[in-house]
Write a protein that binds this DNA or RNA. Structure first.
Lengths: 104, 104
DNA sequence: TTTATATGTCGAAATATTTGGTTATGAAAA
DNA sequence: TTTTCATAACCAAATATTTCGACATATAAA
């Protein structure tokens, strides 16, 4: 049996930063938020709440998870906080796993 | 404002079948199970339980989620059920999202 | 057939996540 | 300054997931 039995230390670098990305993308509400963005678009919280079926605080919670996972970036401009897709980060996380699979 | 406000119907085909893959990969226990497989290897439930810190039924639960997401494939041989990585399926799901991002 | 082994399923408890009201913070307008 | 508005943070309730022991099933061995 040659399986990798180092169960506690086994998460390789390539996967370390993608765990939160997968959790973030694995929720339908968060997927819908991501799909709200048109190409290159930046949206503030109010605009996202407007098209969402969730409360302001629930949307805020999901936006935080998406931002902490690096899936969204944000910037405060005046009173509003604008969010946009961090395409580079998403692409890198997914590519890391695809590359890992190539060695499998 | 040009954002996609079709909040209820917005999940495109490219994302439909990847939701469960992201949920499946977004859990650390399930990541560790996936990382147990050496290249090309097939493992039965007992072998996975052996290197896991979880009970047999918890492992069984996670294997079911991974199999239903298409991340793992399985086959019963005699008394044992063998699992292996469905590399094609994982790659296709991740590539679908990368392709979607290219249009963004 | 009886026994042993491998795995799946069920149900309830433990745990984690999600949700939305309320409160706090920070920035612009009055 | 005071007020208003946008958002974040906090908290408790609702909901979902995870967990494990006990039981069920299926196959193989004795």
């Amino acid at each position: 049996m040659v399986m990798n039995s180092d169960y506690t230390k086994a998460i390789p670098t390539a996967w370390k930063n993608v765990s939160s990305v997968f959790s973030a993308l694995g929720d339908e509400h968060r997927q819908r938020i991501l799909l709200t963005f048109e190409p290159g678009e930046r949206l503030n919280v109010g605009q996202i709440v407007e098209v969402s079926t969730l409360s302001r605080s629930a949307v805020s919670h999901h936006l935080r998870i998406l931002r902490e996972a690096g899936v969204l970036d944000s910037e405060k401009i005046g009173k509003e906080v604008y969010f946009w897709l961090n395409k580079k980060q998403i692409k890198e996380s997914l590519t890391a796993v695809i590359d890992y699979l190539k060695a499998q």
